[in-house]
Amino acid sequence: MSAITLTAAQRKEKRAEAHHLDPVVLIGAEGLTDAVLKETDAALKAHGLIKVRVFSDDRQVREDMLAQLSDRLGAAPIQHIGKLLVLWRPIPPKEKPVDEDRKPGPKVVKVIKYSKRGGQRPEVKKVTILGNQRLTQGGTVKRAKKRIVSRKKRALES
């Protein structure tokens, strides 16, 4: 993957957005390991704009890490200030899994009741219908299935 290139104005905007962020990934004495790359990739997928703290005193090593991270992960290097590196990559769109068994949620239905007298306006109501309900011909809401009552409650009612 190659690094994303941004204009100076875009980098300036991203630096301003990253100002209040805390470091999400910490790179220790081992350097850029596979685990660090995997964690950085996951953070970029989740947040888009991240800060990485490097615990190395050598500036050139930190600059090389920033270049390697941006090349390997396809991210844009935004800033290298002190021991902090700022990276940005657009967040990929999330795909929702399709569940075939899932039924639709509540529906809002407009019920119009005409008056028996011809000159009056019809009465308009919005009614919410849940999954276990149905709308009758007269405009009332009824349960589609009988409600199951426990034996104890049935005994109390009798």
Score class of each variant (00 low, 15 high):
residue 3 A to R: 02
residue 3 A to D: 01
residue 3 A to F: 08
residue 4 I to V: 12
residue 6 L to A: 11
residue 8 A to G: 06
residue 8 A to S: 09
residue 9 A to D: 03
residue 9 A to Q: 15
residue 9 A to W: 05
residue 10 Q to C: 05
residue 10 Q to V: 02
residue 12 K to D: 04
residue 13 E to N: 03
residue 13 E to H: 15
residue 13 E to F: 05
residue 14 K to W: 02
residue 15 R to D: 05
residue 17 E to I: 07
residue 19 H to K: 11
residue 20 H to K: 13
residue 21 L to C: 03
residue 23 P to A: 10
residue 23 P to Y: 11
residue 26 L to W: 08
residue 29 A to Y: 09
residue 29 A to M: 09
residue 29 A to P: 09
residue 32 L to K: 09
residue 33 T to S: 11
residue 34 D to I: 02
residue 35 A to R: 13
residue 37 L to N: 05
residue 37 L to Q: 02
residue 38 K to A: 10
residue 39 E to T: 13
residue 39 E to H: 03
residue 41 D to P: 00
residue 41 D to M: 08
residue 42 A to V: 10
residue 43 A to V: 08
residue 45 K to N: 12
residue 45 K to D: 03
residue 46 A to Q: 14
residue 47 H to E: 15
residue 47 H to R: 15
residue 48 G to Y: 04
residue 49 L to D: 00
residue 50 I to T: 07
residue 50 I to A: 02
residue 52 V to M: 06
residue 52 V to F: 06
residue 57 D to H: 13
residue 58 D to W: 10
residue 58 D to C: 04
residue 58 D to N: 07
residue 60 Q to A: 03
residue 61 V to F: 04
residue 61 V to K: 10
residue 61 V to A: 07
residue 62 R to G: 01
residue 65 M to V: 09
residue 66 L to E: 14
residue 67 A to T: 04
residue 69 L to Y: 10
residue 69 L to R: 02
residue 71 D to C: 14
residue 71 D to L: 11
residue 75 A to M: 10
residue 76 A to K: 11
residue 76 A to Q: 08
residue 76 A to Y: 03
residue 78 I to D: 04
residue 82 G to V: 04
residue 82 G to N: 09
residue 82 G to W: 11
residue 84 L to A: 00
residue 85 L to Y: 10
residue 89 R to Q: 13
residue 90 P to R: 06
residue 90 P to W: 03
residue 90 P to E: 11
residue 92 P to V: 06
residue 92 P to T: 02
residue 93 P to N: 12
residue 93 P to S: 15
residue 96 K to Q: 13
residue 96 K to S: 12
residue 97 P to G: 04
residue 98 V to K: 09
residue 98 V to R: 08
residue 99 D to F: 01
residue 99 D to N: 12
residue 100 E to K: 15
residue 101 D to M: 14
residue 101 D to V: 06
residue 105 G to K: 04
residue 106 P to W: 04
residue 112 I to K: 15
residue 115 S to Q: 14
residue 116 K to C: 15
residue 118 G to N: 09
residue 120 Q to I: 06
residue 120 Q to T: 14
residue 121 R to P: 13
residue 122 P to C: 03
residue 123 E to D: 09
residue 123 E to V: 09
residue 124 V to C: 00
residue 125 K to W: 03
residue 125 K to Q: 14
residue 127 V to A: 01
residue 127 V to M: 10
residue 128 T to G: 02
residue 128 T to Y: 00
residue 130 L to Y: 07
residue 132 N to R: 13
residue 132 N to E: 12
residue 132 N to Q: 11
residue 132 N to H: 08
residue 132 N to M: 14
residue 133 Q to V: 01
residue 133 Q to S: 08
residue 136 T to L: 05
residue 138 G to S: 12
residue 139 G to V: 09
residue 139 G to T: 00
residue 140 T to G: 03
residue 140 T to P: 02
residue 142 K to P: 07
residue 143 R to Y: 05
residue 143 R to V: 05
residue 143 R to F: 02
residue 144 A to W: 08
residue 145 K to W: 13
residue 147 R to W: 08
residue 149 V to F: 00
residue 149 V to W: 00
residue 150 S to E: 05
residue 151 R to T: 00
residue 151 R to S: 14
residue 152 K to W: 10
residue 153 K to C: 01
residue 155 A to D: 10
residue 157 E to H: 14
residue 157 E to D: 00
